[in-house]
Amino acid sequence: MRVFQLGLLSALALASVPAQADHHQEASSQQAEHLDAGRWVTLGTRAGPVTSATRSQPANLLVAGDQNILVDVGDGTAGQLAHLGIQTAGIDAVFISHLHWDHTGGLAAILGLRAQTNAPPRLKIYGPPGTAELVSGLLASMVPGATAGYGVPGAPRADIQQMTEVVELRDNASVELAGMTVTVRNNTHYSFAADSDLARRFESLSFRFDLPGRSIVYTGDTGPSAAVEDLAKGADLLVAEMMDVDDTIAMVRRNNPNMPPQVAAGMERHLREHHLLPKDVGELAARAKVGAVVVTHFAGREVGDPAHLEYLREIATNYDGPVVIADDLDVF
């Protein structure tokens, strides 16, 4: 676990996660002054669809005041939270950027474990159109387990339908929560024709979290996007997805040698058009004039491979501010 202070944030002594509290006793008063700046923890930093032995699927924790807020909730999120000393009952809200499984796969475990531990009802879940349908399906899948309960006849059962409150968000929506303003933009991770039924049904969202002490922009999954650039203008911290697309395509093909050609072509088109390359991250950060960049949703060569440094060089070609390729459980 690494705790970072980046660029414009260097004046802020950011509070560490609970697992490191004993190591920061001397700085506690200074940290308390800056809790309104929030803490961003990269719980999972691996881009889907290929799993990793060293990185969990995309998920983040935003600590805003006394609220623990998940921003995307990929597979493994509950276990990553446990590393921080946070149980699922301690989550106050969830934001979902889009409905791909690598960003939602951990939500079933969050909801099920909350049911088993008598967590407070009405977990607020914010997400794009289709989120209500997703959550409804997850709750329906929980009915058999809730009915069986702990196997004790006559024992009270959790009311599954009271567990969540879903708020669907679209482009330009705004939410007030935990002393901050959350602004939403529709990005380019989907490229449905503007007048199509699919465009009306689905959006892929980027979020800006304006806390009292700083602003954090999370791109979610997106290709180059004027809307995301506008959303990120002047932000203190840009948390951006980034993929080595050529490397990812080669890996998917190795793992799926029998993939039908039409499926493979669609996958490759999606990866090339709907994600950010290192140069795209640098250009976005420079045009938006952000204070620092954290790269997540990472698929590429890891530390120790010369290509890893090449990613940073490509970003730096256009952006001269601080940049970190995040690992799981890094704190910013």
Rank of each mutant, 00 (worst) to 15 (best):
R253P: 04
A265N: 11
G266W: 08
W40S: 00
G130M: 09
V3I: 14
A89E: 11
D195M: 01
L198C: 00
M180S: 12
M142G: 08
Q116D: 11
P224V: 15
R287S: 03
G223D: 14
S215F: 05
P322T: 03
V41A: 12
N68P: 12
A240M: 00
R200L: 04
I160L: 04
G300L: 01
I86C: 13
S52I: 00
R170T: 12
S191Y: 03
D236Y: 04
H275M: 12
G112C: 04
G105W: 09
A264I: 00
R254H: 09
R39A: 03
Y218T: 11
E165M: 05
G149R: 07
L111P: 08
L271N: 10
T188R: 14
Q67G: 06
P261H: 10
R157M: 02
S204F: 06
E310W: 07
H24N: 03
A226G: 07
A78E: 05
V182A: 10
G291V: 02
G223W: 11
A326N: 04
K289I: 01
F332W: 15
S28I: 04
H270S: 09
L169M: 05
D197S: 10
A240V: 00
R170V: 07
A285V: 00
G137A: 05
L107G: 08
H308C: 10
A89F: 02
T54E: 08
G304L: 02
L231V: 12
M243N: 13
P156H: 03
R122Q: 15
E314H: 07
P58K: 09
G7K: 03
H98V: 00
A194L: 08
S215G: 08
L43G: 05
E302Y: 01
D72W: 02
T131V: 03
A264Q: 07
S97Y: 02
A21M: 06
D197N: 09
P144A: 12
F202R: 11
E314C: 02
V182I: 15
I125P: 11
E283K: 03
P224G: 06
N172D: 13
M259R: 07
G85Y: 10
V94H: 09
N255L: 15
E176P: 00
A307P: 01
N258A: 07
R272G: 11
V63Q: 08
I91Y: 12
Y319N: 06
